[in-house]
């Protein structure tokens, strides 16, 4: 991931649920009462870049100032749905950068099962995606619903695959016209 990668920045800006491990004065505006303090044990949603730094910075006797939780888009409900059939889950509505977020979460949590599940889901969805990408009508065909649920990475993959097929088709047609 490069420093100026917009997708990486947007991934970092997604919010994750955190629990404060210590009382912080003056941060009350985060939960809607300015001037007050954030008490220990408060649950708040913080952007990933901030949460990650706070979670790994030791505070006193605690390993981190906050503890991270898996975001809603990777909750039990979603993983169950992915396990049942990855192709029917609308990842885009869960998180626009679903797989990037998943990768970041896997860096922070050691969840082998989640890693395997995401890999399997990606493969199955990629296969479905390729079938749609070879459809000359592109995203307008019958797969429109599935294609709207693609996350950013998958969209880019879809575009690239579609371009490849389109270029070959264009070459074939162009040659016959000559």
């Amino acid at each position: 991931m490069s420093y100026y990668d917009v997708d990486a920045i947007l991934t970092d800006a997604q919010k994750v649920p955190c629990t404060f491990e210590l009382t912080v004065p003056g941060l009350g505006h985060l939960e809607g009462n300015p001037g007050a303090e954030v008490k220990e044990g408060t649950k708040l949603e913080l952007p990933l870049w901030l949460a990650q730094m706070l979670a790994i910075t030791p505070a006193g006797t605690k390993p981190g100032m906050i503890t991270l939780d898996l975001p809603d888009s990777l909750s039990q409900k979603v993983t169950n749905a992915l396990r049942a059939d990855p192709r029917t889950v609308e990842l885009r509505s869960l998180a626009p950068h679903f797989f990037n977020l998943g990768t970041r979460m896997l860096d922070l949590f050691e969840e082998e099962e989640l890693s395997d599940l995401l890999t399997e889901s990606f493969k199955l969805r990629a296969k479905e995606l390729a079938d749609h990408a070879h459809n000359p009508r592109g995203a307008l065909g019958e797969g429109a619903e599935f294609l709207q649920g693609l996350d950013e990475n998958e969209r880019r993959l879809f575009r690239a695959t579609h371009e490849g097929a389109k270029a070959v088709r264009a070459w074939l047609v162009g040659m016959q016209k000559k």
């Binding site: 797989f99 990037n100 998943g102 990768t103 896997l106 860096d107 050691e110 082998e112 890693s115 395997d116 995401l118 890999t119 990606f122 493969k123 990629a126 390729a130 990408a133 990475n153 880019r156 993959l157 690239a160 695959t161 371009e163 490849g164 097929a165 270029a167 070959v168």
Partner: peptide
């Protein structure tokens, strides 16, 4: 190869990212 390069390369790249932590 010219037609499939974008797709196969993209899939492998994404899988590599997902599998990196593992």
């Amino acid at each position: 190869v010219a037609e499939g390069r974008a797709f196969i390369g993209g899939v492998i790249d994404n899988l590599r990212k997902l599998g990196a932590s593992k």
